[in-house]
Simulated assay, not measured.
Amino acid sequence: MNGFVLPPPKAVFFDVDDTLYDHLIPFREALMHVLGTGDGFPYAPAYHRMRYYSDTLSAQAGGTPTQGRALHEMRTRRFILSLAEFGLELSAAQAAEVQAEYLSRQFDIRLFDGARSLISDLLGRECTVGLITNGPSEHQMKKIAALGLADLIPPELIYISGAVGFTKPDRRLFAHVADKLNFPPEACYYIGDSWRNDVVGALDAGWHVLWFNHRNAQPESEHKPHFRANSYEELRQLLLPSL
């Protein structure tokens, strides 16, 4: 932890993928099922590179595509590029098969330990809690349903890039959320794992940023998150220090 406590938040928003649940699990299972990779394959580094290419290709497209051929090509291309770095040369058909398996396994997921209790306790402190995530609206909503969050977070506090029209790290997505809440940006906190999408995007919008760096990634720019945490226990100690 960073040795300081931030002011009590009025609103806390979470990223979804690899922030609320372990996104590496469906990635590993898809590779094992389709490509026969064994226990010795470097899944975590390969996953990191897949996320890198996902962000890079999305940026080149002007934001995460939400439907059609552009979305399909981005999703398959990221697997071809990332896995090539680890000696796996995939055809377009193989990459599409991996992607399909990866998607199908994203609905068999569960929250990180401590996530649900933190959200519940924030709500108990009359804090507004919501989600900001990139991707197609229907797909992301299925994940959110699979995580069992419908009883805690209402639909009007779930902001998905495919529905809003802005894609992280575009500061306009965060500004849109703050405007909807009628809160100043400095009253809003964002928790996410991605440096480019979450740290950069929210900081540029003037939000407080808690970088959920549970994979020990390295900073990719001069941006400075207000706090770094490796677990939900650390997030709890920062946001709810007296509980």
Score class of each variant (00 low, 15 high):
Ala217Ser: 12
Phe86Val: 04
Phe14Gln: 14
Ser54Arg: 09
Gly40His: 08
Thr66Val: 15
Ala61Thr: 08
Pro185Arg: 05
Ala44Phe: 07
Leu152Glu: 14
Ala202Thr: 10
Asp204Phe: 00
Gln218Leu: 14
Leu71Cys: 04
Glu186Val: 03
Ala96Gln: 12
Phe107Cys: 11
Ile109Trp: 06
Leu152His: 07
Ile109Phe: 04
Lys180Leu: 09
Ala178Tyr: 03
Ala115Lys: 12
Leu31Lys: 04
Glu101Tyr: 09
Trp195Gly: 12
Asp108Thr: 13
Arg69Ser: 15
Gly114Trp: 05
Val5His: 13
Asp15Pro: 10
Arg69Lys: 15
Ile109Arg: 06
Asn197Tyr: 00
Thr64Ile: 13
Tyr21Arg: 13
Pro154Trp: 07
Ala205Ser: 04
Leu235Ser: 10
Phe27Asn: 09
Thr19Trp: 03
Glu101Asn: 14
Gln140Met: 07
Leu81Phe: 05
His139Lys: 08
Thr66Phe: 12
Lys10Gly: 04
Pro225Tyr: 01
Tyr189Asn: 02
Glu89Lys: 11
Leu131Gly: 02
Ala11Gln: 14
Cys188Met: 01
Gln99Glu: 15
Trp211His: 14
Trp195Cys: 12
Pro154Thr: 09
Asn182Met: 13
Gln99Gly: 07
Gly162Ile: 04
Met1Val: 15
Ala92Thr: 10
Asn134Cys: 05
Ala59Lys: 08
Lys168His: 05
Phe13His: 13
Arg69Phe: 12
Gly201Ser: 14
Phe212Tyr: 12
Pro65Glu: 01
Val16Asp: 13
Leu210Glu: 00
His208Phe: 03
Asn182Leu: 12
Ser137Ile: 01
Ala115Tyr: 06
Arg69Tyr: 15
Glu156Leu: 06
Phe174Glu: 06
Val34Asp: 07
Val177Gly: 10
His208Gln: 11
Tyr52Asp: 13
Asn2Arg: 14
Leu157Pro: 02
Tyr159Asp: 05
Ala70Cys: 05
Leu57Ala: 08
Arg110Glu: 14
Pro185Ala: 11
